[in-house]
Design a protein around this nucleic acid. Structure first.
Length: 957
RNA sequence: GCGGGGGUAGCCAAGUGGUCAAAGGCGACAGACUCAAGAUCUGUUUCAGCAGUGAUUCAAGGGUUCAACUCCCUUUCCCCGCACCA
């Protein structure tokens, strides 16, 4: 161990020793196993600070588990399937300036390398080498024998097997789904291809088919339940409508709606045009209630929204109510309407606590909305909608749906109506327009004949809920998030036309989408170790059936694949040993995709005993307050961080800067501070080890309060660190194992503690080993034998917890603080400091009060009675009430631990202070005297009277 | 809109009923060391105070309690996800 800390030297030394000794290459044995995985990185860039955080947390847990006796499997692979790598190659090959800049300057790829990249394979090769080197440089304890890339032929065999299996289980089905579509490019539009309307989402409307003499007038609505309250339809008389043949029906819709329908999965044929005004005054049949309602004119109806035909529900929609009211007295005879339409009776169907029978009417009255053009109409609509959605219940008007809450009805009702053929689904963007990069306006297209993983299937979801219920989620608050996401997940298109990946085995023109192929790859880590034992073609279904599922026999698997039966047995046994996954630790961005699919596929394929055990989630990392971006910057690569600060400091910093799902902000000023603290740690260790060699007095020196205090403190640090690690609170763990102990050591040295430094260091280094393994190995080399990485994690020794020593240090520290505060205020250089510890009668009162608190009988009356009956107390009768009252207040809020310490130890304040007298003298630079108030000695101002337990009185000259 | 997470001193950030004027870090200021700078160490950093104290604070407002940053209600602001993309 050198006097000056050189991270690089230490890190290279230990990384190569670990490698030579193969200490992170576990084989099954009789220990308990722990299988931890981190999502493999996607190879379209270098590992950055975000990866650094997620992976370091995983490595710390792996190292910790190893030190507490588990046989730990911590493997790593690389993800390369999908489209981004293909896209990146295209950009690099055509020398896109922005791409070249980002990858050359931010990802730090030399120009000659960039120029040599021609194929996706080049990218995969380059980044996989870089990523492995990066992970090694920061000291992750990964078993590298098991690495693989998802584009390898062997791996594709697993995916083929998996999808065949899912297909046979009816988990992969054919269907159609809506996508954002550019009519000009004739392609789905991805996020980064959108010029305008990036936030637009696809909204599903229900289309209700009103009947007009055989023609269908479809009305799009987000609230299908209101069909029960329709009093009329609205049509804009100035708009030309289209009559269409839609499948077997005839529809009338606006021109815009016609354009949209062309991209749906229906067959559409234009018949002729219909002017809006010719429809007004006619009567249509409400397909749900069977009632006949009038079509009325309304200028507010816009052809761009929905079908261009609107159903009117004045009882619950302020606009409809207002429009109807506005028609009062209007002359509609031109449309053949002679009745007074404003007297059409409203139909209520939702009961909501805030309003009477007609919520729209009440809202309009309440907000004093004038007419349909009043901006407040919008507000009224929002309020009514929100209140009805959250608190509304359907009334008898809705027949069999009566009593259901509005928030639950939509899906059920839509489903029912579609089944009866009286409704349909209509898609619309949440905001318009959505413009493609090419300039064209995007539409929503139904992609037909698409392959889906039918995640929405209730029995599949049921299994996932069951799996989740049996899992530990870290942090626990996130469980509800998982439940919501499972609930939200719909069928997922799982095949694409382009990108890297495995072909769908039964429909070879499709490539399996790259999220679907990243779901059970954890099982492949077990196989990946044996890749040199067989060719890809040998990995037939029988192989996976037996090795992963135990179907049939090893003999059969061997004979149908030609793989040695010994290998087959070894793989099966290893699988049974390592599976299931004990912990999957990931960034929070992967919850709604990778992590969720990981659960779905595991429950579909594996028996319950092999379902995952726990999931841990962590937040992102930003740089000096700015969001990182792989493709635009800023970005900080793992390698450059390690280059600049060293592996251990980088690890320590990223672990300590935020907890769990909280986002971390990487700040150079802060990591510099970590570096300084770390160098201090190194110096303490170095001094301790070299002192030990020179003098031998330490171990023979008698233990003082301060030494016992340090040992005691250490036990708490161990307890806290262990507890934090068990909850995967790495920040808290580092606080305790590092920062708090540093501060303890500061105080310890300042107080002149001398004993057991080496013992303390021994514990401390082992406590730190999961976080900063390199330096700890380096120190351990001088302290113990073997690798610290394989040594045991410290366990707290309760017998070393010393409450008297803690009280002694507390009183010393507090007294010093008080003296310093007085000195600061009186601004004098002291010549004499006199301390008086509290009189014994006060200590008695405190103890009595604590005892009463324990028995739950503490109050002023009881305490006074007890005190006054004690003859020894009588001399102080005058002072007792005031002190007793104060004591009661103190004791009410006193921590249990302290009460125990005060009553159950034979701690003596005077002797504790006497022991630290030399220290106090040194700090205040004058003579210090200590008396007990019972026998005050020198006390010119009678200060001893104000002394209370744990708070000596002070007199300064 | 739906769902999730947040709002604590100049900044970052602990803190789920009493040990809290509130850990830790950064920054700032002062002192020690130094010819000096840096590093390091010590202290201060809401306000007032020449005796260890007092007053007012934890987004805003209200409530529960002997006691609230901590529990409940209302309001408000910020961040993230809402998909076929890894």
């Amino acid at each position: 161990m050198k006097e000056r800390y050189d991270p690089k030297e230490v890190e290279i030394k230990w990384q190569s020793k670990w490698k030579e000794s193969r200490i992170f290459e576990p084989e099954p044995d009789d220990r308990k196993k722990f299988f931890i995985t981190i999502p493999y990185p996607y190879l379209n860039g270098n590992l950055h600070a975000g990866h650094t955080r997620t992976f370091t947390i995983g490595d710390v847990i792996a190292r910790y588990k190893r030190m507490i006796g588990y046989n730990v499997l911590f493997p790593m692979g690389f993800h390369a399937t999908g489209t981004p790598i293909v896209g990146l190659v295209e950009q690099i090959v055509k020398k896109d300036p922005e791409t070249i800049r980002v990858y050359n300057q931010l990802h730090q790829i030399p120009m000659e390398v960039l120029e040599s990249i021609k194929t996706p394979e080049n990218i995969v090769e380059y980044f996989s080498i870089e990523a492995e080197a990066a992970m090694k440089s920061i000291g992750f304890s990964i078993d590298w024998r098991r690495k693989f890339t998802t584009t390898e032929p062997h791996y594709k065999k697993l995916i083929t097997w998996q999808f065949n299996l899912l297909h046979s289980l009816d988990k992969v089905v054919k269907g159609a789904h809506p996508v954002r579509w550019c009519p000009n490019d004739e392609n789905p539009v991805e996020d980064h291809d959108i010029l305008k309307g990036e936030d637009a989402t696809i909204i599903e409307y229900t289309l209700i088919k009103f009947n007009l003499d055989g023609d269908i007038l479809p009305c799009a609505t987000l609230r299908p339940e209101t069909v029960f309250g329709v009093t009329n339809l609205w049509i804009n008389p100035k708009i030309v409508h289209m009559r269409l043949k839609v499948n077997d029906e005839t529809w009338i819709v606006s021109k815009d709606a016609y354009d949209k329908l062309k991209y749906s999965d229906k067959s559409i044929e234009l018949i002729d045009q219909v002017n809006g005004d010719t429809l007004i005054g006619k009567k249509v049949i409400n397909p749900v209630t069977g009632s006949s309602v009038l079509i009325l004119p309304a200028s507010f109806v816009s052809p761009e929204n929905g079908s261009g035909i609107v159903m009117s529900v004045p009882a619950h929609a302020p606009y409809d109510y207002l429009a109807l009211r506005d028609l009062k007295g209007a002359d509609l005879t031109v449309y053949g309407i002679t009745e007074d339409v404003s007297s059409i009776p409203l139909i209520a169907l939702i009961k909501v606590p805030e309003y009477g029978k007609y919520p729209a009417v009440d809202a309009v009255t309440e907000l004093k909305v004038k007419d349909q053009n009043d901006p407040k109409a919008e507000e009224a609509t929002k309020i009514v909608y929100r209140r009805e959605f959250h608190g509304g219940v359907l009334t008898e008007t809705t027949g069999k749906y009566a009593g259901m809450s509005v928030s639950k009805i939509k899906d059920v009702l839509t489903h029912d109506l579609i089944e009866q053929g009286i409704a349909d689904v209509f898609y619309e963007f949440s905001e318009q327009p959505v413009i493609c990069r090419c300039g064209a306006t995007c539409v929503i297209k139904m992609v037909k004949d698409q392959w889906f993983l039918n995640y929405s299937e209730p029995s599949w979801k049921e299994q996932v809920y069951k799996c989740l219920a049996g899992m530990q989620i870290i942090p626990p608050e996130l469980r509800v998030e998982f439940e919501n996401k499972i609930d939200w997940l719909k069928d997922k298109a799982c095949a694409r036309r382009k990108g890297l990946g495995t072909r769908l085995p039964w429909d070879m023109e499709w490539i399996i989408e790259s999220l679907g192929d990243s779901t059970i790859y954890m099982s492949y880590y077990i196989i990946a170790k044996y890749l040199d034992k067989f060719e890809p073609e040998q990995l037939k279904a029988e192989f996976f059936d037996y090795c992963l599922l135990g179907k049939s026999t090893a003999q059969n698997a061997s004979s149908s694949t030609g793989i040695d039966i010994g290998i087959i047995n070894a793989i099966r046994n290893e699988f049974l040993y390592w599976y299931p996954v004990d912990l999957r630790s990931s960034g929070k961005d992967l919850i709604p995709n990778h992590i969720l699919f990981f659960l779905f596929h595991h429950v579909a394929i594996f028996p319950e005993t092999h379902w995952p055990k726990s999931i841990a989630i962590n937040g992102f990392v930003s740089l000096e307050g700015q969001k990182m971006s792989k493709s635009k910057g800023p970005i900080l690569t793992l390698r450059s961080a390690v280059e600049e600060y060293g592996a251990d400091i980088t690890r320590l910093y990223i672990l300590s800067t935020a907890e769990h799902v909280q986002d971390a902000d990487w700040r150079n000023a802060d990591i510099e501070a970590t570096r300084k603290q770390f160098e201090r740690f190194y110096k303490i260790a170095y001094d301790c080890l070299t002192e030990e060699n020179n003098t031998n007095s330490d171990s023979t020196c008698e233990l003082k309060f301060i030494d016992k205090w340090m040992l005691s403190k250490m036990q708490y640090r161990i307890i806290e660190t262990t507890d934090a690690l068990n909850r995967m609170q790495t920040r808290r763990a580092v606080q305790n194992a590092f920062y708090h102990i540093i501060n303890d050591m500061k105080w310890y040295e300042r107080r002149g503690g001398c004993a057991s430094k080496k013992d303390i260091l021994n514990t401390w280094v082992r406590l730190m080993a999961p976080f900063t393994p390199h330096i700890c190995e380096e120190i351990w080399e001088q302290l113990g034998s073997g690798f610290i990485s394989l040594n045991s994690f410290p366990e707290a020794d309760i017998s070393l917890i010393d409450r008297s020593a803690e009280l002694a240090e507390e009183i010393t520290g507090n007294t010093l603080k008080d003296i310093e505060e007085i000195l600061r205020l009186i601004k004098l250089k002291p010549t004499r400091v006199v301390l008086y510890t509290a009189a014994s009668w006060k200590k008695n009162i405190l103890k009595k009060a604590i005892m009463m608190k324990k028995d739950n009988v503490l109050d002023m009356k009881t305490l006074m009675n007890a005190l006054m009956s004690d003859p020894l107390m009588r001399p102080h009768a005058k002072d007792i009430p005031k002190f007793a009252q104060k004591t009661i207040n103190d004791v009410q809020g006193m921590e249990n631990e302290l009460m125990v310490s005060l009553t159950e130890t034979d701690f003596d304040e005077t002797s504790a202070l006497k022991e630290s007298m030399d220290f106090l003298k040194r700090i205040v630079e004058c003579d210090v005297e200590i008396y007990n108030a019972d026998d005050a000695g020198y006390d010119p101002q009678g200060k001893s009277r104000i002394a209370v337990p744990m708070r000596p009185a002070i007199y300064i000259e």
